[in-house]
Design a protein around this nucleic acid. Structure first.
Length: 329
DNA sequence: CGGTTTTGACCCGCGC
DNA sequence: GCGCGGGTCAAAACCG
């Protein structure tokens, strides 16, 4: 696992926009059963856009997860007061064996972002430098207008989407707690997949970050999370105190993933380009969640195969990448 | 009671 | 132009 492959696409960070895709394997965490894994979630926040600077890179390493439990339900941090997860996504897989402690979790699941529909994703990705923030908000408004009233007016402009990136997590829990608070606003059946895709939006005012979560149809234990947009606020201010994050003095928190054994992340990809290289890494630093950055990523064949999944995965994983994955097999 | 989830309907983009 | 699939809205239900 020492490899990290992916490419960066997050314009926000990497202005280059080289799209790419990659998978990170966080298998390092395996074994959570023991409770030792480092959490892979540290970086969620980063992902979300919050600080790139602030999270200490070493958090990951230094971060010692409390004895995590095995895949916990999304919630869980034992330490923080978390609330119970209200919902359990129906997916079979998700029936998590509640092994986890059910601690609680907040309604904030978490995970990351990703790429969304292929087309859109592609578009986005190709736009290296965009001001995502503004657009984001506008976008939202636009959308709202579209739906509510009439159509947007900007027809020429294709809907631009925020930068997004996706990653796969091996977890029994669909909804991973990344420290932010999310509200589910939709769920849709995914074609070719027995598992539904859930849509979440950050509940912070003014923050238009969205997240999509779906389970791989090939491997029910794999959860694909795609984040879109960047948080406009710092950490979740959760009155409920549910996030599983540890607050850092600086104000950043470290989410604790209590759910995973093993995680594989896919960094957003652009359909057209896939950069799996150190370069990507570089950019990643800036935008990627620290946990991801810190961990050793790799693209195990197993993960790769997952990529071949349909639905979101399809979007997320560029064909090229998929191909590669196959080859590896 | 306030916030979240559920879920059917609607809108939009895209391919045929 | 039509159908399909994805994404979002919003009312109702649910939950703490």
């Amino acid at each position: 696992m020492a490899n990290l492959s992916f490419s960066d696409e997050n314009p926000a960070v990497a202005a280059t926009g080289f799209g790419g895709g990659g998978i990170f394997d966080m298998s390092a965490c395996e074994g959570i059963s023991g409770g030792d894994s480092k959490w892979g979630s540290l970086g969620f926040m980063d992902l979300l856009g919050i600080s790139q600077d602030s999270i200490a890179p070493s958090l990951f390493d230094s971060f010692q997860p409390p004895p995590l439990l095995p895949p916990l339900p999304p919630s869980t941090s034992s330490e923080l007061h978390r609330q119970q997860l209200p919902q359990g996504h129906p997916s079979p897989a998700s029936t998590v064996p509640e092994s986890s402690e059910v601690l609680t979790n907040p309604t904030t699941p978490n995970s990351s972002s990703f790429s969304s529909s292929s087309n859109e994703a592609a578009n986005d990705i190709h736009e290296p430098t965009k001001v995502e923030d503004n657009e984001e908000q506008e976008e939202d408004q636009d959308k709202t207008k579209k739906q509510l009233n009439l159509k947007p007016k900007k027809k020429n402009q294709k809907r631009q989407r925020e930068p997004r990136f996706a990653f796969m997590t091996k977890s029994e829990v669909d909804h991973l707690d990344d420290g932010y608070r999310w509200r589910k606003y939709g769920q849709k059946a995914v074609k070719n997949s027995p598992f539904p895709r859930s849509y979440y939006r950050c509940t912070s005012a003014g923050c238009g970050v969205k997240k999509r979560v779906e389970r791989s149809s090939d491997d029910a234990t794999i959860v694909v999370t795609t984040y879109e947009g960047q948080h406009t606020h710092t950490y979740p201010i959760t009155p409920r105190g549910t996030m599983g994050i540890g607050l850092d003095p600086s104000g950043f928190s470290v989410p604790q993933p209590r759910y995973l054994h093993q995680q594989s992340y896919i960094y957003n990809s652009s359909p057209s380009s896939l950069n799996i290289s150190s370069t990507a890494t570089t950019s990643l630093n800036a935008s990627f969640p620290s946990f991801l950055r810190e961990r050793r990523f790799s693209t195990p064949s197993s993960s790769a195969s997952l990529l071949t999944d349909r639905g979101l995965l399809q979007d997320i994983v560029p064909t090229q990448m998929r191909k590669e994955a196959k080859e590896q097999h």
